[in-house]
Amino acid sequence: DNLVIALHSYEPSHDGDLGFEKGEQLRILEQSGEWWKAQSLTTGQEGFIPFNFVAKA
């Protein structure tokens, strides 16, 4: 599955970004460039995340 774990917390800075906490698990929905579309397994919310803040779970 496309699961990743957050290496750092991220505060959203643009509409459509997904904020998350360090250690949170996310499911990657789309990989494109440096911003990936993801869904939080904690909150169920979707949005874009910086790819370098996460690692394969």
Rank of each mutant, 00 (worst) to 15 (best):
D1V: 10
D1N: 11
D1Y: 12
L3I: 14
L3M: 10
L3K: 05
L3H: 05
V4A: 08
V4Q: 04
A6C: 05
A6H: 02
A6M: 06
A6V: 07
A6I: 03
L7I: 11
H8S: 09
S9L: 05
Y10T: 02
Y10F: 12
Y10K: 07
E11Q: 14
E11C: 14
E11D: 09
P12F: 05
S13E: 14
S13D: 09
H14V: 10
H14I: 08
D15I: 13
D15M: 11
G16V: 06
G16P: 02
G16Y: 10
G16F: 11
D17G: 13
D17P: 03
L18E: 01
L18I: 08
L18K: 03
G19N: 04
E21Y: 12
K22V: 09
G23W: 06
E24G: 02
E24V: 04
E24W: 05
E24I: 02
L26T: 01
L26G: 00
R27A: 06
R27C: 08
I28S: 00
I28Y: 01
I28N: 00
L29K: 04
L29Y: 05
L29I: 11
E30S: 12
E30Y: 12
E30Q: 10
Q31S: 13
Q31D: 10
S32M: 12
G33H: 05
W35V: 08
W35Q: 07
W35G: 06
W36V: 09
K37E: 01
K37R: 14
K37Y: 15
A38M: 04
Q39F: 09
L41D: 02
L41Q: 04
T42L: 14
G44F: 08
G44R: 06
G44H: 07
G44V: 02
G44C: 11
Q45K: 15
E46M: 14
E46Y: 12
G47W: 05
G47K: 01
G47T: 02
F48I: 07
F48V: 07
F48A: 05
F48R: 10
F51T: 06
F51R: 15
N52T: 11
N52M: 10
N52V: 07
N52I: 08
N52Q: 12
F53Y: 14
F53N: 02
V54Y: 04
V54K: 00
A55Y: 11
A55C: 14
K56P: 14
K56Q: 11
A57I: 15
A57E: 11
